[in-house]
Design a protein around this nucleic acid. Structure first.
Lengths: 349, 349
DNA sequence: GTTGGCACTCAATTCTACCGAGTGCCAGCG
DNA sequence: CGCTGGCACTCGGTAGAATTGAGTGCCAAC
């Protein structure tokens, strides 16, 4: 049927509709209940009767911003409704308590990067009551500071590589010949010489000889570079996965979401996909994974030297508290950026 | 397997009671419903009427093996009931399909220890539909093969230590003075000389001088040994945490269990506590954590060279399929034992 | 000791009535 | 014209009563 309502730019609502939509979303986020015309009329202070609100709501429903669970229930925001809400949101500010909490945390953390990120994910989760995700940088672009071959026993060697970003990776080698200490040491020397200063993206010239040392060197380099194509360098830290249980009421939904969270690669690509699309919030189906269609995801990038070095994210129900979540994620990402990016400067004074 | 090392009379049930108890437990495990006298009378083939079963049940209830959710409902096993059931259980055998699955998995796995353990936890979880826990060995007793200090920049050094068990740990140093490459190299040389061949339990003689090299050496050794007291060396891999969601029906229970699983240290100590107490199954409150009182935990140690090097575990509801779970955990632990303990022998062919 | 019989209990289910929040529609008002 | 109050209507939720039925405990009899 043809609708005579003309909507050139459907994404812009007139002021009153916007106010009403906002009221509905806010209240539904707060109460988890469908919200009716009268409570909107009283809460939002447009001097207008419920009846008027109602007629606006019909219109908002026609346009896809609201939905009715059933006739004679109030309205519930659709994903599109949340989207509008988020896009036109006054970006909230973090509560001072939480700001304090954050500053204190970052002032006191010590330990390895991984530990910091892990703890950060827990903190972020606790601050927001949502599940937090912290994605650590890949070291694809970091240069190699040291590559050392350690002899475990005659048939097992371990290639230990240290990158300029402070990450360390190991790779096992299991040659088909016995390796004595001397051979290992020599191979280690050559590997180190070969790889130092390169990145994983650098092509290196491996020796083509067939002696044991050369084979070790080749195997080592191969092992190291083999990891590159997979997004394996990303470390994911998930904090507060138990929050999933109180974000959703259907046990089945909980299972599905947890199941997704278990697949870390998937989480990484979700987050990176969002960053690539320039999204900071993905609502419902926007995130591209059906099992997550009841979820909203908020992300904030962590940048070091201008490059994206990681991200923090929050996962909650579509009716999540977006302001809080965005503020928290933003603040944490900034703290991380400062913590890792700015520390040389601090250290120099 | 030890059977009757119990108190004289009260913990040993006569044959018929035992049969009845077993029937109740089995059926309740299968159906999750309270089970009544008549179904026991027909399922277990003791030629006896429901009425007789009933009177036995009263007695079993008095002795604490069974409980009634309410009058006029069937009986449900108590923790004690499950305990008896487990203790007198014919140890089940793994299905051939799963045996095959396991062999195939272990024949094909490659990669670092951590990866193997991670994948193992996923596999075990998938095999059993329960949440799997794999605890990796600590390297407290492993000797140090190499300890190297790598210069990240003037104020950041990384101590990279390789242990004889193939594990690698890193520790950041942030001295309060600028370190040049030469100093770092010299410190690295000294650290290596000092630590090689020692274990984390070995006391080493650090230089007492005040020059930069000596300070670096001291800091490095201190950083390395600092980790010792905590059970930090243990790596935990949890597979299938989403299974928690269908093991329990109360959302609140799910939350609590997940919440426990998040605290990895806690999981480690739970498992180690069980191993120390010689338990292979902890039912309900036996595990010592109230939030886990609805859970049963099955563990099996992984031994390398006769010493406990880790463990695998399964976590499910108290009405879990104990035979299957124990068989699976046992089989996996044996595979792991063979995989890591016996691989030198294999490597020699 | 075992059994069938029997009265009894009580969660779960079904049915009914009904309340009320909320709607859509409309006629009238400024 | 847009806004409003009024009104009939819808339908999920709740509360209460009645019913069902699985399962018990007890007991007299075998």
């Amino acid at each position: 049927m043809a609708r005579r309502v003309k909507q050139p730019a459907s994404s812009d609502l007139d002021a009153r509709k916007a106010t009403i939509l906002e009221a509905v979303v806010s209240e539904h986020i707060a109460t988890a209940q469908p919200v009716g015309s009268s409570s909107v009329a009283s809460n939002a202070d447009l001097g207008v009767s419920p009846a008027t609100v109602r007629s606006e709501m019909v219109s908002l429903e026609r346009e896809g911003y609201l939905a009715q669970p059933h006739t004679s229930a109030g309205r519930v925001p659709t994903d599109k409704g949340y989207r509008y809400f988020v896009d036109h949101l006054a970006s909230g500010v973090l509560g001072t308590v939480q700001q304090h909490q954050l500053s204190e945390f970052f002032a006191n953390v010590r330990g390895e990067v991984e530990d910091v990120l892990e703890q950060t994910s827990t903190l972020l989760s606790r601050m927001t009551s949502y599940t937090a995700v912290v994605v650590g940088a890949t070291h694809a672009h970091a240069s190699i500071l040291s590559a050392q071959l350690v002899n475990i026993d005659a048939r097992h060697q371990l290639l230990v590589t240290v990158f300029s970003d402070g990450s360390v990776v190991k790779h096992s080698l299991t040659p088909h010949f016995d390796v004595d200490l001397e051979t290992c040491t020599e191979a280690s020397r050559q590997i180190n010489a070969l790889l130092i200063g390169t990145t994983l993206e650098t092509q290196v010239q491996v020796p083509s000889r067939h002696d044991h040392v050369a084979v070790l060197v080749r195997d080592a380099v191969a092992a190291l570079h083999a990891a590159l194509p997979t997004a394996d360098g990303e470390k994911v830290f998930i904090g507060g996965s138990s929050r999933v249980a109180d974000s959703f009421d259907g046990v089945e939904t909980v299972r599905q979401v947890l199941s997704i969270l278990e697949q870390e690669l998937l989480v990484v690509s979700l987050v990176q996909d969002m960053l690539a699309r320039g999204l900071s919030v993905a609502i419902g189906t926007e995130n591209g994974y059906e099992p997550l269609s009841a979820c909203a995801v908020v992300v904030a990038p962590v940048t070091i030297d201008g490059a994206t070095a990681g991200a923090v994210g929050l996962l909650g129900p579509t009716r999540m508290k977006y302001q809080e979540a965005m503020a928290a994620a933003g603040a944490v990402s900034q703290h991380l950026t400062r913590h890792f990016g700015g520390e040389e400067e601090n250290a120099n004074h």
